[in-house]
């Protein structure tokens, strides 16, 4: 659910059943299996275009909505070092949104249409951003672990088949490594700091544990696969594989600081597969369907940003210029 397609049974059926010109399809698939990228002007199956727009658009929404929970602490960041890092980090997230909307635009959907679909609820964004950043320690957890999770997803997606999305992700992953570093730095300062700081951090960690498990979407057992999307390199790893990779990389970095995770069942199996307690997938569904702690506020703020300043864009607009789809 970040740049991550999870399909309903209905949607999977449509993707799998779509019929295309066999010769063109064969050429298209051969190109992908040779490891070549697809570029905007190329012929592509309708479902490829549709699923890519949906995925990149959701990813872009996640970036700009993701700027809001962390933005909560911009004016309150405690010193020059943290303040400048946080502003620059949140700025990058907005920049990622810009890059990703651009990549999606090359597939033929305008940025305003995508933003309108976000506001109407037609198009989703990552659930993780519907949770509040209650304290400064939440900023450390977000910067380190939410960004850590996002990186797992983005590095995998950067190996996909669509050129403009891969290019955007390459740049994004570079910037994410700064996010991770500054997040980890903040996290370590709190973990190795005073009793008050450690307690703040532990509480924040407890709050974010479930949303982090939810981050990669429902278990493979409960989500629909599309062989086609795998073959077309739109989806490159299963939800469970990505989640496992995340736990493998980050749980040790949490435990080495003497912190705990609120899950007695969490452990790494001998097969390298992490086992964890039931993360309450019903809550995941509730939040996705709009009933999370911050869904309403996130959309209200985005609506403000989009609509209260429409006069600015209208004043800038030159009616003689016609929008054309960007190419890269």
């Amino acid at each position: 659910m970040y740049g991550n397609t999870s399909l309903t049974a209905e949607e999977a059926k449509i993707v799998n059943a779509a019929v295309e010109d066999p010769a063109k399809l064969e050429e298209f698939e051969a190109r992908i299996s040779r490891g070549e990228k697809i570029e905007p002007g190329d012929w592509m199956p309708e479902q490829y275009r549709k699923q890519l727009i949906r995925m990149i658009e959701q990813h872009a929404h996640s970036e700009i909505v993701g700027a809001l929970p962390e933005g909560t602490w911009i004016t309150r960041a405690p010193n020059f070092r943290r303040k400048l890092a946080l502003i620059a980090k949140v700025q990058d997230e907005v920049g990622h949104g810009q890059l990703l909307y651009s990549a999606a635009e090359t597939l033929g959907k305008t940025r305003e249409q995508m933003l309108m679909d976000l506001l109407s609820g037609k198009s989703k964004y990552s659930n993780v951003f519907n949770y509040p950043a209650n304290t400064w320690a939440d900023i450390a957890v977000i910067g380190f672990l939410v960004d850590g999770a996002a990186i797992v997803n983005q590095v995998i997606n950067s190996k996909g088949s669509y050129g403009p999305y891969c290019r955007a992700l390459e740049r994004i992953c570079y910037e994410e490594s700064f996010h991770l570093k500054q997040g980890h730095d903040n996290f370590v300062y709190l973990a190795t700091g005073t009793k008050v700081q450690r307690e703040m951090l532990q509480e924040a960690l407890n709050r974010w544990y479930r949303p982090l498990l939810h981050f990669f979407g429902p278990s493979d057992r409960d989500s629909q696969h599309s062989e086609k999307l795998m073959k077309w390199k739109v989806k490159l790893a299963s939800n469970d594989d990505m989640r496992n990779q995340f736990l493998d990389q980050y749980v040790p970095k949490i435990l080495e600081l003497g912190l705990t995770l609120p899950d007695p069942e969490l452990r790494r199996g001998d097969d390298g597969i992490w086992v964890f307690g039931d993360p309450d997938w019903d809550e995941f569904k509730r939040v996705i369907n709009g009933d999370g702690p911050c869904n309403a506020e996130r959309l209200e703020v985005r609506r403000y940003a989009e609509l209260a300043h429409r006069w600015v864009r209208e004043a800038l607009m030159n009616p003689k210029e016609k929008y054309v789809t960007p190419m890269a």
């Binding site: 911009i74 949140v90 907005v94």
Partner: peptide
């Protein structure tokens, strides 16, 4: 800095 994330256009 308060504009970060809520400005009139992403670029701005």
């Amino acid at each position: 800095s308060e504009w970060t994330g809520i400005g009139p256009m992403l670029e701005e």
